[in-house]
Every structure is written in structure tokens, then in C-alpha cells.
Write a protein that binds this DNA or RNA. Structure first.
Length: 426
RNA sequence: GCGGAGAUCGCCUAGCCUGGUAGGGCGUGGGAUUGCUAAUCCCAUGCUUUCACGAGCACGGGGGUUCGAAUCCCCCUCUCCGCGCCA
């Protein structure tokens, strides 16, 4: 949710945001609902004040043994009026919230304006992006490192069994990411993989909830699409101590995605799947420090890919390509050698106070001070499946083995991966 | 899953039976005094809104009864104890 003050004082800026994002939204209805709600609230407020005064008068009269019947009669008639005013207030507030919750976040001035990814801007490139022939699905299946067919039989499309050394390599990515995060001031957190619907609604927008998120039938629970969802909601309805900021978490979890809008895209292998493991950077920051935190966070993710020796580039997403909760997003796109393309491996966003407002996460330095909403930021450190694809396609030796990136070797226990020693599935 | 007990302003707690402005202690912040640390005293210390005075809201959440609910009734959530089941 954006600050209602922006809506009231600078509606032109909000309109500009909508046009830059290419999103339709009934702003007039939202502004009207805001005004109606505030009016209804102050009317109901006045009626409550009158009721409270009368209540005190009744109590005083009864205490002194006097006759309170006159006041009680007046309260009786005021009660019906108050009820009607409260109903009007509830209705107006519901209308306002409904419209405000679906309004996307403001867009930062440094974000390029454009309809889609074609307007994204490449910020920098790293490493030598060499094309290669071996497609990850074929390589991995050929070496018995993944079983897509049986996963399809058991679970359906976009699932996979990882097998043998590929499991160790995935685990190594997670271990290395957690160690790096620890060294950069992040506290590791393994969050709940299912969260209640109202928590999910605070962390994401309604349309993503429908398209991307799995719900548990018969329960008020959703599967997280990323640990970001669980981390963002972690301090909901809290007032944090400003001295504790920034709070940096490295969320480690499985991620679940419906991929409902992706029919036909990236069908092969483990590139686009319903489930993967991810280590995610998440930060709660002071508003005046959040842009520096954003760059810092991107830097940690870049450090991870540089350390693995994986060629990649940093891209600043355009206004039309960004998520609705983000004010500015960088992607790190890793080189996928067989696709001969850079593809998204990391997404690093500053959400300003948009999530914090929805989740009521605030802070202050002294109890005498007014509360302010924190800023929330999130960035992938590593999504295992995407990184595995980049490694399998990009790190092949002349004799067809997969070279384990140096920082991962201590976790995998070997320098390269060949065919399994007769233990893989036939 | 069954039985029992609970949830009050950062922490502890009173109030609930018997409905009528949510009180106290600790901690924290500010001030006074005392040649220091300490002790003592005063003020402030849930949230929202207001330039301010003030007003409203708040006793886990939501309904209901009532002129009026922390208090009575119903539903839900969570915590603790015992039993059952279980990695």
C-alpha cells in the first residue's frame, strides 16, 4: 500500500506511476473512497464521544443514587444512530482498502520507462559468455543426475527428482550462500513454508496470489512462493527498535510456484519448475538508508556469482517489467550457455514502505518519538535450480564432465561430476 | 485428536463472580535535589488523529446480549499442562 498522503497531496505522481507501469486503476474511485472514509470516521467518532459522555453521566447518577433514566433514554436513541454511522464507516473503509491494496507501488525516478523487458537497461556484464551445445536437461538426464520422466509420472509437469551428485551440488550452493550471507551480516532463518492468507496478502498483491501461489484446500494457508513472503510477514504488527535496524535475514526455504501464466515457456528440464530451494536476502531498513541497502544487497548477490565464476549481467528492470510491490528492481541474469541467453537468476528489489504498510511493520528510536514504517528489501542470493542450469551448461570439461566451481568443491567433496557410479536410476 | 488452564499498555500483575472513565509494580525517558556512583521525589511512558487543546480506539481476534462489555454468551486463533499419535 502506498502512503495515503501521496494519494491526497500528489495524485498526479500516482497517475504518472500508473502510466509508466502501464496499469489501469480507478484512481478517482480510490480518492473518493478515501475522502468518504475519513468523513464517515469523524462522524462516527463524534457519535462515540457523545455516547461515552452519556455513559459517564449514567454511572455518576447511579453512584450518587440519583435518577439516570433520562440519560439512559438518550443513550438508547443515540445507540441506533451510532450503529448506522459505524456501518457506513466500515463500508467506506472496506471500499478504500480494496482499492488501495490493489494499487501498485510508486516507481523510483531512476527506473527506465517502458512496456516490458525490451526497455530494461544493462548496467554491467561480468565474465565471458561462451555459447555451448549441451542443454542442461539432456546432460543431466544422460548422466543420471535428474529424473524428469518419473517426476512427471508421480507429480506431473514441471517437477523433478534430483539424483546423486546433483543433490550434493544443490546443497553446496545453499551452504555456500548461507556462509557468504553470514559473513555479510545476515542472520540465517528457515521460515515456515506455509503462511496464513492474511500474511500472504500483506507480502504480495492479489493477482500474484491467484496466479503464482498455491493454497491449501480446507485450510487458511498458502505455500510460500519464496521465503520473502514469510520473512516480510515476520514482524507484522510490530514496532521495531530503530537501534536494531537494519535487520538482515538470509531466508532459506523451498519455494512453490504455480507458473499458471507460463504455459509452453521453458518446458524442458529444471529451469522453470513448481518447486525449488532458495537462499534469499531480506532486509528491514530505515527509509533514509534503504537505497544504499539496495545497492549493498545487489553487491552481495553479484559477489556470489562472481565467486562461482558464472558469467552474468546486471539489468535494471523497466517500469513495465517490474513487480507491483517493488519501486526498483535489478535482476542478475546468468549466462545459460545452451540457450545462448542471459536469463534471470536473481531479482533484487526495494519495496520502500509498501509491504511494511500492509503488514504494519514500523519502528522508532525513542518511545517518545512518532512511529514510521520501515522499508523492506529482498534479493535472491541463489535459487538452486537456476544456478544448477548455469553450472551444468557452462562448466563442462572437454571429456563431458561437469566442473564443480571452486568455492563449492569443499561442500561437494570433489572437483568434478561424471557419470554416477552405477547407482543412478537406469 | 481428547481433557484441563490461560491470553490485560515492553515485562509482571489487579480488575472478571456482582457490567458504568483499565489500576499498581518493574523497566525505560525527562526533570528536581544531593559535591560523584547511589538513594529520594516529581512528570511521562499502548495505538491513531490533531499545529494545539482535545477526541477516538485498545484488555488475543470476530460476532452477540445491553442504554453501556476487560467483565455475561457464542465462534475462532494462539500458548501452557496431562493423555493419545508421531519425525
Amino acid at each position: 500500500m502506498i502512503d495515503p498522503r501521496i494519494l491526497r497531496e500528489r495524485p498526479g505522481d500516482v497517475r504518472e506511476m500508473l502510466s509508466r507501469r502501464g496499469v489501469e486503476h480507478d484512481l478517482d474511485a480510490l480518492v473518493a473512497a478515501d475522502a468518504a472514509w475519513r468523513r464517515a470516521a469523524s462522524e462516527a467518532d463524534a457519535a462515540r464521544q457523545r455516547r461515552n459522555e452519556l455513559g459517564r453521566a449514567v454511572a455518576a447518577a447511579k453512584k450518587s443514587g440519583g435518577d439516570a433514566s433520562g440519560h439512559i433514554a438518550e443513550m438508547r436513541s443515540a445507540a441506533g444512530r451510532l450503529e448506522a454511522l459505524e456501518a457506513a464507516q466500515r463500508e467506506a473503509h472496506g471500499r478504500y482498502i480494496g482499492l488501495a491494496m490493489s494499487l501498485p507501488n510508486m516507481v523510483h525516478e531512476s527506473v527506465p520507462t517502458g512496456p516490458d523487458s525490451s526497455a530494461n537497461v544493462v548496467v554491467r556484464e561480468w565474465g565471458e559468455a561462451r555459447p555451448a551445445g549441451g542443454e542442461h536437461a539432456r546432460i543431466m538426464e544422460g548422466m543420471g543426475l535428474v529424473d524428469i520422466e518419473r517426476a512427471a509420472k508421480v507429480s506431473g509437469a514441471r517437477f523433478y527428482y534430483l539424483v546423486g551428485d546433483m543433490v550434493l551440488l544443490g546443497r553446496a550452493l545453499v551452504s555456500h550462500a548461507l556462509d557468504l550471507a553470514d559473513g555479510r551480516g545476515y542472520t540465517a532463518v528457515q521460515p515456515p513454508y506455509m503462511i496464513r492468507r492474511d500474511s500472504m496478502e500483506g507480502a504480495t498483491v492479489a493477482e500474484d496470489l491467484e496466479e503464482a501461489i498455491y493454497s491449501i484446500e480446507g485450510e487458511d494457508l498458502c505455500m510460500i512462493g519464496t521465503s520473502e513472503h514469510a520473512m516480510a510477514a515476520m514482524h507484522r504488527d510490530e514496532i521495531l527498535d530503530g537501534a536494531d535496524l537494519p535487520i538482515r535475514y538470509a531466508g532459506y526455504s523451498a519455494c512453490f510456484r504455480k507458473e499458471a501464466g507460463a504455459h509452453g515457456r521453458d518446458q524442458k528440464g529444471i529451469f522453470r519448475v513448481h518447486q525449488f530451494d532458495k537462499v534469499e536476502q531480506f532486509a528491514f531498513a530505515r527509509p533514509e538508508e534503504s537505497w544504499a541497502e539496495h545497492e549493498r544487497m545487489l553487491g552481495v548477490a553479484e559477489e556470489f556469482y562472481r565467486g562461482l565464476g558464472l558469467p552474468h549481467r546486471v539489468v535494471l528492470l523497466s517500469s513495465g517489467d517490474m513487480g507491483k510491490v517493488s519501486a526498483k528492481t535489478y535482476d542478475i541474469e546468468a549466462w545459460m550457455a545452451a540457450q545462448r541467453e542471459y536469463r534471470e537468476a536473481v531479482s533484487c528489489s526495494n519495496c520502500l514502505d509498501y509491504q511494511a504498510r500492509r503488514l504494519r511493520t514500523r519502528f522508532r528510536d525513542k518511545t517518545s518519538e512518532a512511529t514510521r514504517h520501515v522499508h523492506t528489501l529482498n534479493s535472491t542470493l541463489v535459487a538452486t535450480t537456476r544456478a544448477l542450469v548455469a553450472i551444468v551448461e557452462g562448466c563442462r570439461t572437454a571429456d563431458g564432465r561437469i566442473e564443480v566451481p571452486r568455492p563449492l568443491q569443499r561442500y561437494v567433496g570433489k572437483a568434478d561430476i561424471g557419470a554416477p557410479r552405477g547407482r543412478g536410476p537406469p
